[in-house]
Simulated assay, not measured.
Amino acid sequence: MFVDPQGPVIVEGPVEIVLDDGTVARSDRFSVAICTCRRSRTYPWCDTSHRRRERNGRPTEERKR
Rank of each mutant, 00 (worst) to 15 (best):
R41W: 00
F30G: 13
R41H: 01
S31W: 13
R26V: 11
C35D: 04
R41M: 04
A25F: 10
G13R: 10
T36F: 01
I10G: 05
D21N: 12
P14F: 14
C35M: 07
S27V: 11
C37A: 06
C35I: 04
V15E: 11
P14E: 14
T23L: 02
C37F: 07
I10M: 09
P8N: 03
I10S: 11
D20G: 08
T23D: 01
S27N: 11
P8H: 07
S27I: 11
V15D: 10
Y43W: 00
V11W: 06
A33C: 14
S27F: 07
G22E: 03
G22M: 02
T36G: 06
C35Y: 06
C37V: 05
R39L: 15
R38M: 08
R26M: 08
R29Q: 15
V11A: 02
F30P: 14
G22T: 06
E12D: 13
S31I: 15
C37S: 10
Y43R: 00
G13L: 05
D20S: 08
A33V: 05
D28Q: 14
R39S: 09
V15W: 09
L19G: 01
V15S: 10
L19S: 01
I17H: 03
C37G: 08
C35G: 08
R38Y: 09
V9H: 01
R26K: 15
D20K: 04
P14L: 13
R41S: 10
D20N: 07
V15T: 13
V9Q: 06
S40E: 04
V9E: 05
L19W: 02
A25C: 09
E12M: 06
E12Y: 08
F30W: 15
S40Q: 02
D21F: 02
T23H: 06
R38K: 14
R29D: 15
P8Q: 04
V24Y: 09
V24G: 01
S40G: 04
D21M: 04
R39A: 11
D21T: 00
